[in-house]
Design a binder for these strands. Structure first.
Lengths: 233, 233
DNA sequence: AACAATATTCACCGTTTGATGAATATAGTG
DNA sequence: CACTATATTCATCAAACGGTGAATATTGTT
């Protein structure tokens, strides 16, 4: 307990001595100090990316700030420096999905154009576009982290509810003409949610190794029925 | 910091003094020593019960052995004494949760008998029995907590995988004759999982306020198709 | 050159967690 | 009564976690 100040003094001296020589171009990313204009530090984005990676693969509690910092290649303190704390970091990482969800709409349009002659069913198109969306790393990771953490985090839960209800995605879905569209929508959402949970979160076999095309052919008709059939309410 | 040992000494004395008098029938449970034959200590079962309670409401990581011991009214060390460690305790507790899943089978049989003339579809029966199972407080809560925590808890995940694959439930499901039963099973599981997630975890409206009967009529045919139809693999 | 803003590192803290070793009380057994 | 198996408590441990304060390096600004 008395050696505290002494140890600090020694290690600090040693550190400054050993660093002074090897300030090469490779360590540009790790250099201290105010960044030069457009060549600003990428650390902020690195942390956010690493956070999305970790949160999409593990739950909030299991993810450690130290692991995120390790992946981002920075000191753990920088997470607090940039984001404040673990909760704020998760919020920021999860919010990225809102901005990315227009991609789903894009995929739906693309898929509908390309495959309309072969398989024009809206349900099949939906599944295929959604699975492609999930494979697109950035938004897919964010979405997964939402699904995974929605049981605990209120912010994630609210986003999930909106997604299941189809509020955030797909103008085409909103435009279809059918009765009781709200109920039909949540039925579609429940099946897609279950698919993603089983396939990407739980990784249940043989579901996880089935091809997106096969899944679309099998599950698509379910969505079609939810959307168009007479469901004898 | 210097008062620690002093405080401990005092409390120890006080405790032993206050206990000595009131060794009545109520504190029979907390007495030390070798238990009398059939009147053995209930601590083992108390711990297991407390563990099930805690694990079914929070994930494996969030549950602390101290909290379980507090609920069981015993010293934390006894958990290690009886079970070895946290993992072994969870395994034992989870086996009891699984043991309850025979109820689902029972509900399926009951529902099939009662409603066979009105609606004999296996899919409809499945949904109806499953929703009734979820309403049955004890196993329903445990199941729900598994779903809620499976995203961030590996232990819960393993149980969920088994449940989604239908391995733990329903002799009737196992007995049906159809091709590719494994794939068909996980498709059924995915839709039921999505339904429970959307309805009971996220509580998405208007899904959450729909009657079990209506849900069974709407979603049942989906399961029938997954179980029996030609799915053009 | 002096100063302020930014970026990064280091050492450390308090808390909580699962776990362990030693001691101790009680009841059956011979 | 002596002895042993069982049941319980206490005191502590090392590790990991999120978070904090202070120092330091680098750049832009004046």
């Amino acid at each position: 307990m008395a050696e505290k100040s002494a140890r600090e003094g020694i290690s600090r001296k040693e550190a400054s001595e050993s660093h002074e020589v090897e300030v090469s171009a490779t360590s540009l990313r790790h250099r201290r100090g105010r960044p030069g204009g457009k060549r600003a530090s990428t650390t902020y984005d690195d942390i956010l990316s690493a956070a999305r990676y970790e949160f999409s693969r593990q739950g909030f509690d299991k993810v450690t700030l130290r692991a995120i910092a390790r992946r981002a290649g920075c000191d753990p303190k920088l997470i607090h420096y940039y984001f404040g704390g673990k909760d704020e970091l998760f919020t920021k990482a999860a919010q990225q999905i809102i901005g990315d969800s227009h991609l789903l709409d894009l995929f739906i349009q693309q898929d509908a154009k390309r495959a309309s002659c072969v398989d024009g069913s809206l349900g099949v198109t939906l599944i295929r576009a959604f699975l492609k969306f999930m494979e697109t790393t950035e938004p897919g990771e964010a979405y997964l982290s939402l699904v995974r953490n929605a049981g605990r985090d209120d912010h994630a839960r609210d986003l999930m509810v909106a997604l299941v209800r189809g509020e955030l995605t797909s103008d085409r879905l909103k435009a279809i003409k059918t009765d009781r569209i709200e109920k039909r929508m949540v039925l579609v959402g429940s099946q897609m949610l279950g698919l993603i949970m089983a396939r990407d979160v739980f990784r249940v076999e043989p579901l996880a190794s089935m091809s997106p095309g096969a899944l679309a052919r099998i599950i698509g008709p379910t969505l079609d029925r939810y959307l168009y059939a007479d469901l004898c309410w």
